[in-house]
Amino acid sequence: MTEPGSATRSRAAAGERDAAWVRRCLDGDEDAWCELVRCYSPLVWAVARKRGLSDADAADVHGTVWRIAVQDLTRLRKAESVGGWLARTADLQALRVIRGYCIQRRALDRIPVREEDKEQPSDVLGALEDRRRVGAALAQVGDRCQRLLRLLYFQNPTPSYAHISGALDMPIGSIGPTRARCLGRLEQELGRDFDE
């Protein structure tokens, strides 16, 4: 059997791809910038919303993060970690918005700083980044696998095997083995980056 963790990747690691995007951005390639924005906008948006910001405030944070990014890419020391850097930048900008609220509140109503005005634990940012990575990897494992894994793990309550069998036109006895194969593909698609 295959040694755990020895799955080879069929494509360049996401970190290498991100580093290439950053290099191309610094070379003046606008297409690379647009790809970077499209890839990481959901993460930036999710971090802001996770802080409880409104759509309008999340939009401000989103715009600020990309303005910072376009100016500071040259100073980024680890280009392959640009995703984590964007998430942390979004979180700091979201905190600034929240602190603005709290200052107003103290001035007006003497309401103390809210509980959420604390740094978002890194594992929360990590979980959002995991969702982005897994979402991107799921898109590569095929529609049938994607639907099966979402039915088994995203639906609440989990549908019965009979329901899944009907929905996917798959014998009940195949669901378990197919699930394992799909997870294997997902694991391979995520590759080494997911161990970090």
């Binding site: 906008s41 959901p42 993460l43 930036v44 948006w45 999710a46 919303r49 759509d55 939009a59 989103h62 979980a127 959002l128 995991d130 969702r131 982005r132 990575r133 897994v134 979402g135 799921l138 894994l149 979402r150 793990y153 995203f154 997870l183 997902l186 694991e187 995520l190 997911f194």
Partner: peptide
Amino acid sequence: ERMLVAVAAGPLPAAP
């Protein structure tokens, strides 16, 4: 476990 937690949490919402 990390993979399945992420699958269970669903995809990130798209930014507008």
